[in-house]
Amino acid sequence: MTQESVTLIIRHSARPDSVAAYEAILRELTRAASEFPGHQGVDVLRQGDRFTSVLRFASAGQLQDWLDSPQRRELIERAEPLLLDGDNQERHDAHEFWFTPAETGQKPPPRWKQVIVTYLVILPLVMLVPQLWKPLFQVLPWLGGFLLSNVLITLTIVVLVVYLFMPRVTRLFAGWLNAR
């Protein structure tokens, strides 16, 4: 039986007068999560007093161990008085969280729309990123070898897609993606 990684998205809205105190607890939460078996990383996005944490674990069981842990329970109990609307969680066994609607109960967009948006993001990067690396590969030929150049190009594309373009593009196309 193969284990597929699982992603947990946690949204917290801190009370305006409690943002600094919440951030301190959030740092403790991310550090504690990183020490749990199966932890594969966490990204925290902040928009004013709203925080979105994206945690990845190697398996659903390992994620559940973290969620049920006394460490997390104690930290969440400390954080709850600092929050406007509690501990809001979304679990995703697949990696479709870019396309998860903000409103609860709303269905994700059809896969064909997800494919189009993803294609529109990745296509220009696949054409542009190798050209941007090309001058460096010419100056440092050892960096331009088949394996290393492909690792650098792919890493650049993945980082740009995940951190820069997909969050913005899904917001830009939200009306079309979620139109029924």
Rank of each mutant, 00 (worst) to 15 (best):
L120D: 08
L8M: 11
E96R: 08
R15D: 14
K107Y: 06
V44P: 00
L143R: 07
Y22C: 09
P108R: 00
P167F: 04
S69P: 11
L148Q: 12
L84A: 11
P109N: 02
G145I: 14
L55N: 04
G105N: 03
L152Q: 02
M166E: 04
R50M: 11
G41K: 10
W142N: 14
A20P: 06
R168V: 12
D93M: 13
T154R: 10
L152M: 06
H92D: 14
Q64A: 10
S53L: 00
T104P: 03
A174Y: 09
V158F: 10
Q138I: 04
Y119F: 15
A79V: 10
N178G: 10
Q47N: 10
L8G: 02
R31N: 03
A33I: 06
F173Q: 01
S149P: 09
L26P: 04
A58L: 11
A33H: 07
A94M: 12
S18L: 06
T156H: 10
M127I: 12
D93L: 15
L63T: 08
V161Y: 12
L45W: 10
H92N: 15
V121D: 07
I116N: 04
G48Q: 04
V151D: 09
S34N: 05
W98C: 01
Q64Y: 02
F173E: 01
I122P: 05
H95S: 11
K134L: 05
P141R: 00
R78D: 00
K107E: 01
S34P: 08
S13C: 08
Q40C: 14
A20S: 15
R180I: 00
R50I: 15
L164A: 12
P16S: 15
W112Q: 12
E90Q: 15
R27Y: 11
G48A: 03
G105H: 08
I10S: 09
P109V: 00
F57P: 05
G41A: 09
L45I: 15
E28H: 09
D17T: 15
L84Y: 01
I25Y: 11
N178L: 09
R15N: 14
L63V: 09
V54K: 05
L45H: 13
T52H: 03
A174I: 01
D85F: 08
L55M: 07
A60C: 08
Q106F: 02
H39A: 13
L29R: 12
E103F: 01
G145D: 15
S69R: 12
P135K: 01
W133E: 03
V19S: 09
H39Y: 12
G175A: 05
Y163H: 13
A33N: 06
H92W: 14
S5A: 14
T154Q: 10
F51M: 00
D87A: 02
F57N: 05
Q47W: 07
K113M: 00
Q64S: 04
D49W: 05
A24H: 14
T7S: 11
N150A: 11
L84D: 08
F165P: 06
L136D: 06
R168C: 05
L45Q: 12
P135N: 03
Q40V: 07
L67M: 15
I157W: 08
H95A: 14
Q114F: 05
R50H: 14
L172G: 07
H95P: 01
R72A: 05
P81K: 05
L29Y: 04
R78F: 00
Q138P: 03
T104N: 07
H12M: 12
K113A: 01
Q106K: 10
W142K: 13
L177C: 01
P101Q: 01
T154D: 08
Q138Y: 11
D68K: 07
S34Y: 11
Q138C: 03
